Amino acid sequence: MTVISNVDQVFAGGLSVLPPEGQRTGMFKQRHAGSVRVERHGIVGDQHGDTRVHGGPEKALHQYAAQNYERLAQAFAHSAAQLVAGSLGENISAFGLCELNVHIGDVFRIGSVVLQVSQPRSPCWKINHRFDAEHMSMFVAKERITGWYYRVLQPGSLQAGDRIERLERHSELFSIDRFWQVQLSHRPVIDDLIALAATPGLAPDWQRRLSERAKYLQKLTASSL
């Protein structure tokens, strides 16, 4: 067991309207000072605007590195006042953990909850609308400061101030940052795709997508021989 960090803030909430077009979103979450209950689908009472791409057991909770907001504020100065913990829709905010030292499949205990890192967050256009910044989601993706999702292995309760303890690490190869390096590469090494797809704990949807891409590149390579 390794104590990595402490939870600084916890966020959850209902649906709101996203300007200027009025889409429903769960991005505008409220800070919770007390204990929250976490079940298989996440924090009880937390909601998502588009359940096709948000929420569910493989995206039960989203954690974002609090230190990343400084980089965002420097890059998007006109939105700096809005770029504070919780504003990207994360559930857990903490310093210390980040995309460089969190790996796919890592198992953590926070409070009485046991969580496993299942995949990175894929930033979408709603970030641009939220901050009136046309290229912010692209910046988040290119800089690989996306945060990550957990699945819930053991339901329980957590709150701000709880220790974040790493219980297990299943892969030394694939941090969240390394995941994106492989995934975003124009022509990734096929063996890297295969190894990433086979990483214990990776969400099934990403296993499928990475495996299909590896097979496609294998066929492309074979046809050019």
Results as ranks from 00 to 15, higher is better:
122 S>K: 01
137 S>F: 14
177 D>G: 01
67 Q>V: 15
82 Q>P: 00
23 Q>S: 06
224 S>F: 09
153 L>P: 12
181 Q>W: 09
13 G>H: 13
71 R>N: 04
121 R>I: 11
17 V>Y: 11
206 W>A: 12
128 N>E: 04
70 E>R: 05
120 P>A: 04
1 M>F: 13
215 K>L: 13
150 Y>C: 08
184 L>E: 13
212 E>R: 15
193 L>P: 07
184 L>D: 12
74 Q>L: 00
152 V>M: 03
132 D>Q: 13
65 A>F: 04
150 Y>V: 08
182 V>I: 13
53 V>W: 00
223 S>L: 10
200 P>Y: 07
59 K>F: 11
27 M>H: 09
72 L>G: 00
147 G>Y: 10
91 N>H: 12
183 Q>S: 11
103 H>I: 01
49 G>W: 12
215 K>T: 15
221 T>G: 10
162 D>E: 09
58 E>L: 02
146 T>C: 04
28 F>G: 01
172 E>Q: 05
220 L>D: 09
214 A>K: 13
96 G>Y: 15
56 G>S: 02
193 L>S: 08
87 S>L: 04
137 S>E: 09
145 I>K: 09
138 M>R: 15
56 G>H: 03
176 I>A: 01
148 W>T: 02
5 S>Q: 11
167 L>T: 06
26 G>T: 06
222 A>L: 03
86 G>R: 01
167 L>C: 04
69 Y>C: 00
92 I>P: 04
185 S>Q: 02
98 C>R: 04
137 S>V: 06
224 S>T: 07
55 G>P: 05
89 G>Q: 10
194 I>T: 12
8 D>E: 03
25 T>N: 05
148 W>I: 03
3 V>W: 07
162 D>R: 09
36 V>S: 09
115 L>D: 15
1 M>Y: 14
13 G>S: 12
205 D>Q: 02
112 S>N: 14
10 V>E: 07
40 R>C: 01
42 G>V: 13
189 V>W: 13
146 T>D: 10
1 M>S: 11
150 Y>W: 11
158 L>P: 08
122 S>E: 03
189 V>D: 14
180 W>V: 04
137 S>A: 12
182 V>N: 02
169 R>H: 15
207 Q>F: 14
82 Q>T: 00
219 K>V: 11
